[in-house]
Design a protein around this nucleic acid. Structure first.
Lengths: 166, 166
DNA sequence: CCACATATGTCAACAAGGCTGACTTATTTT
DNA sequence: AAAATAAGTCAGCCTTGTTGACATATGTGG
């Protein structure tokens, strides 16, 4: 619609290409979250519940502080969501034997069931996109995404494909 | 932390790899939005303001309906944000000569300045990640992201690097 | 021309999920 | 014994999404 100056910048990619990447991220993330969001809405939950359930499911025995570090929200924000999930029996907590101040979180069977229901859609979306793009593209996809994460938080997602997230 | 069954599934990638991709998306998007969010908070704005400014800047002369189609929110949600941006002089609207019901949106100089300030951080983050990962990885990154977008909305982000978003 | 559809805007009420600040209770560390 | 840490709670605020109802201007098809 308007003319772009095709700036030859010192960024290796032209600004036009970088902006397209920004837009791809926006649209992809928007659609990536839309399916679980719709299911959550029916259950009276929101996206924050999915995030809590997801990361507890992936890291059984996670402490509250660690979950806060992953989500980068305040404990007051988390407590609303986590409190609901505990009261409604999706998550249970147990006192850590080695440090009795800590509460270690785990999914119940009910929690695992909901986690699967929600994450399934996202797994299929990512799987389809990766399959269609090919193995090499998938590798690049993961490498660039990883490079976008603040260095201090990259340890949450391992480089090699065989280690778990914790 | 727990053992994963290394399911040989019909999805071309194992579930472990797919889950890692989901986590990469979460962390990357979380950090991708954090810098503009901090600036916006100081100005009394939120992420929704950035999105409106961004897409109007990228598509000068965009109609309100088109912006709604991009953002996939209700017009009532948009009107709050857009109203502020209009009143505070970041965006102007002009009646479309060919269809006088339509209001075509454009950034003012002030709006362009804010847009650049906000998007700059994201451009640098993406540029760095792409540069470090290499040209081939970047290509794959873009291809997979594109494949994650609902087909009906892929037209907003062109395939070839030289066409604009509209 | 009239009826209908479309584009935009507005008012009101509600909910999710962020935030800050203040304060408590256990427990561990120093 | 004091300080730091982990967790939890209460209260209030903001942004940004939602629904529903309605108003106005303009375009379109019969």
């Amino acid at each position: 619609m308007d003319h772009h100056k095709t700036k030859v910048n010192p960024l290796f990619l032209r600004e036009e290409e970088l902006r397209q990447s920004i837009e791809l991220l926006f649209f992809a993330y928007r659609d990536f979250t839309s399916e679980p969001d719709a299911i959550l809405a029916e259950l009276g939950f929101g996206r924050a519940h999915h995030r809590a359930i997801y990361f507890v499911g992936r890291n059984p025995g996670l402490a509250v502080n660690q979950l806060l570090d992953i989500l980068k929200i305040t404990k007051q924000s988390l407590s609303r969501v986590l409190g609901q999930l505990l009261r409604e029996g999706f998550i249970v907590q147990a006192t850590d034997a080695r440090d009795r101040r800590r509460r270690l979180l785990r999914l119940t069977a009910k929690g695992e069931e909901l986690e699967r229901l929600l994450t399934e859609k996202q797994l299929h979306r990512v799987a389809r996109a990766c399959r269609e793009a090919g193995a090499e593209a998938t590798e690049g996809f993961r490498t660039v995404l990883r490079g976008m994460i603040n260095v201090g938080d990259r340890h949450w997602v391992p480089l090699d494909a065989d280690s778990a997230a914790m």
